[in-house]
Each structure stands twice: as C-alpha cells, then as structure tokens.
C-alpha cells in the first residue's frame, strides 16, 4: 500500500517566538524549526503500517527550499521518497488542501495521513478540506488503544488497522466524551492525535540513507493550483500578558467577585 504523509515545517516551540513590531508576522531570525510534531506522529504511523502491510511512505511538504530539512527528517525516519511543493508566498488552508489534493491525485495513495493540526497556527482544517476536495472518507484525531494481545482486548482494535482486504481502515478517534471507532473505505484521509504513537528517533544509518532518497520538486503552477489566499491575515499580536492574581479573605468575597466583577456565576 502507498501512504502519503505531510511534513510541515514549523517553529520549534522551544525557541522564543516574537511578533514583529508592525504585526505583519513573527520574527524569523534566530528561530529553530522542526517537523510539525503531529505530522511526525503521522510519519511514524505510516511507517508502522507499511512495516505490517508492505508498501511505501511518501512524504510531502510545501514551502521554500528550507522545507527539505523536514523532508530529510522524515526520510531519515524511514520514508521512501519525498515530494516538495516549492512555494514561498502566502498560503491559506484551502491553498494547502488544494495542493495536497493534486499531489494525492498524482500519487494515488491508499491513505493520506496528516497531523490533526500544525503547532504554529493550530488551525485544524487542512485534513478536513483535503478529504472534501478529494471526495474521500475522513477520520480525524486518530488516537491510541491497547494492543490486541489479551482475549479481552480482541474486540478492541488498534488505532489504525487496515481491513483484511486492505480496502478499509478502522480508526479509533479521541472525541470529547471518549473514544469513537470509525471504519472508512480506502482511499481515505486520517489525521493524527497526540497519543497515537511515540515517533522513532532517526538513527545515524537512517540519516545517511536519507541522503540518497529522491525529493521530487513540484510547484503550484505544475500542479495547476491557484493558491491565491482567500483568507487574509490582517495583523498578528501577542496575547495580552496575564494580570497578577489577588488573594481574597474568604469564600463570600470570592463568590461576590465571581458574580459581580467576573460575571461568571
């Protein structure tokens, strides 16, 4: 089977992220970047599925030349080859989904796995748009369940399990009131949640092998996608700093403040 997985380049949450004084974006200088952690979970899940069912993981990223670093990271983890959509201008979620749609139509994967969201803007939209654009089934927020080893567990299913004929996928999702299990005909779109797996650490032999794995370059023009954003970013700003808390002498005062100042009870 073939699995297409996304690898978005995002700011490392451990670097200090500052908004530019004019609000036009964030200060790029001195920042570190990494593969979106949810996408990394997707790469891992793809690798585990092909280890079981055979096939290949193709990894895709959109951006300037620098996104090749994230593609190499996924290749070092074990992906077979990479697709790089070379685009440096602004891009909204529909633009991303449009580009991924064309890549998917070209690659014809059985499954597309994306992070449920990217940790830079936390939008949580691309997977859903992509499924709609492709007209495929979708199972978002795929999460983890216990193994099938004991009798008791046999009725449960692992988070992502291919149907016996490899024509469907069963996904356990994290939802507000617990877990929901979906079965989806292939091809399908799956987005990963945090607890799906623990991604492997790229090994040195894997890193060296990744050097010779191919990265195919595409562009929005080659894919005939108009990526003119429909969403316009007006301004970026840091959230206002939290005010210091106060101590109240007793419960009565607390209730009074909650009712009359905060107006929450």
């Amino acid at each position: 089977m073939k699995i297409l997985v996304t690898a978005k380049r995002v700011e490392d949450p451990e670097s200090k992220i500052k908004v530019k004084p004019d609000g036009s974006g964030i200060v790029q200088e001195g920042l570190k970047y990494k593969i979106n952690p949810f996408d990394e979970i997707g790469v891992e899940e793809g690798l585990r599925l092909v280890a079981k069912h055979g096939g290949e993981v193709v990894v895709v990223s959109i951006g300037g030349k620098e996104v090749q670093e994230q593609l190499r990271h996924a290749l070092a983890m074990g992906a077979t080859r990479a697709v790089w959509v070379n685009h440096t201008g602004p891009l909204d979620q529909m633009g991303v989904a449009g580009l991924l749609q064309k890549v998917a139509e070209k690659e014809k994967p059985d499954l597309v796995i994306l992070g449920k969201q990217a940790i830079d803007d936390d939008q949580n939209q691309v997977g859903q748009y992509l499924a709609e654009f492709l007209g495929w089934g979708q199972a978002t927020f795929a999460s983890k369940v216990e193994s099938l080893e004991s009798e008791q567990e046999k009725n449960k299913v692992p988070a992502l399990q291919m149907g016996a004929d490899n024509k469907s996928v069963r996904v356990v999702r994290e939802v507000d009131n617990g877990l929901a299990t979906l079965e989806c005909a292939l091809p399908a779109v799956v987005t990963t949640d945090l607890r799906l797996n623990l991604p492997r650490y790229a090994s040195l032999p894997g890193i060296m092998k990744a050097k010779s794995k191919p990265i195919e370059e595409l562009t929005p023009a080659k894919l005939s996608v108009d990526v003119t954003p429909k969403v316009q970013v007006l301004k970026m700003a840091s959230p206002p700093p939290r005010k210091a808390g106060i101590k109240v002498p007793d419960v009565a005062t607390l209730v009074d403040k909650l009712r009359n100042e905060a107006k929450v009870v």
């Binding site: 990494k34 990271h73 650490y201």
Partner: peptide, 18 residues
C-alpha cells in the same frame, strides 16, 4: 565527504531528544 551540516543536525537532534 558524505556528511554535511544537515546530517550533523539530524544526528544531534535524535541524540539530544533521546
């Protein structure tokens, strides 16, 4: 000759995360 800053970075990232 087979190495580059990229391979160094990937290896350092793996080891420090591990």
């Amino acid at each position: 000759a087979d190495h580059s800053r990229e391979t160094f970075t990937l290896f350092l990232d793996s080891t420090r995360r591990f």
